[in-house]
């Protein structure tokens, strides 16, 4: 008797479960374009001996949630603020030549420790920017809170400018990415409190057209978190 009830329940369960996370229409073309772009990026990396990307097999969504939640936007903002503070403190505490001391010619290249610190900071920033832009794109699709996004973009923009101005910013590809990222972040930072759809469409189209998301994903070493495994 109990088995019969269980069987009937299982049948009902199967029927009801078909609506569980019911998939939308497969966005074939969009995904195919992204696959082609990322594979081309991977080939370019191999040809140029690029070392930024460690593995092609980890999903970009492994990084912070793609769900458009307003409270999640605080996370990149908080990290960006900490990064900006860190870079600022680093600049202030860096040794400066004394006016009285003779200027001695040294190597043009900054110390290796500085390079490593810059790479780590830039990677974290790019990871946070990628997470933010993923959230932003999803939020736009669902009519989320772009006002908060604008505030977060300003925080990231400040960090972005510090990184661009850094004397350690010697890698041409990272510089180019930071420059393109600056434009996108500036556009979002300047959004009106209630932005019009065309404004938002321009930004999201710009993200797609410039391959910004895939370039960011390629630039960030894959892993659980942009703050993990950097060393």
């Amino acid at each position: 008797m109990s088995d019969m009830l269980d069987d009937r329940f299982d049948d009902q369960l199967r029927d009801s479960a078909r609506d569980y996370n019911a998939p939308p229409t497969t966005p074939r073309e969009e995904m195919w374009a992204a696959i082609q772009a990322r594979r081309a990026d991977g080939q370019a990396d191999r040809q140029t001996g690029g070392k930024i990307r460690q593995s092609p097999s980890i999903s970009p969504s492994d990084r912070p949630s793609a769900r458009p939640s307003v409270r999640l936007l605080r996370w990149p903002a908080a990290i960006a603020a900490v990064l900006a503070l860190g870079i600022g403190l680093g600049r202030l505490s860096a040794p400066r030549p004394s006016p009285a001391a003779p200027i001695i010619a040294t190597s043009v290249n900054p110390p290796r420790n500085g390079d490593a610190a810059y790479r780590i900071t830039a990677t974290e920033h790019l990871g946070q920017s990628e997470a933010f832009l993923t959230l932003f794109r999803a939020s736009v699709r669902r009519g989320g809170n772009e006002q908060l996004a604008s505030a977060t973009a300003r925080q990231l923009l400040a960090t972005n400018r510090l990184l661009l101005d850094s004397p350690a910013a010697s890698d041409a590809r990272t510089r180019l990415l930071l420059q393109d990222l600056e434009l996108v972040l500036a556009e979002i930072a300047q959004l009106a409190p209630r932005p019009s759809s065309p404004d938002l469409d321009l930004i999201t189209e710009g993200l797609e057209r410039g391959g910004m998301m895939s370039r960011l994903r390629t630039a960030v070493p894959s892993g659980a978190s942009p703050t993990q495994g950097a060393l």
Partner: peptide
């Protein structure tokens, strides 16, 4: 692609993640 996307969407419940996982599947 349909079968892969359906499966990962069922697991993720989010279109952005499902797209990323599908793309990653084919790249791999």
């Amino acid at each position: 692609v349909d079968r892969v996307f359906r499966l990962v969407y069922r697991m993720a419940g989010d279109v952005d993640r499902a797209q990323d996982y599908t793309q990653e599947t084919f790249i791999k």
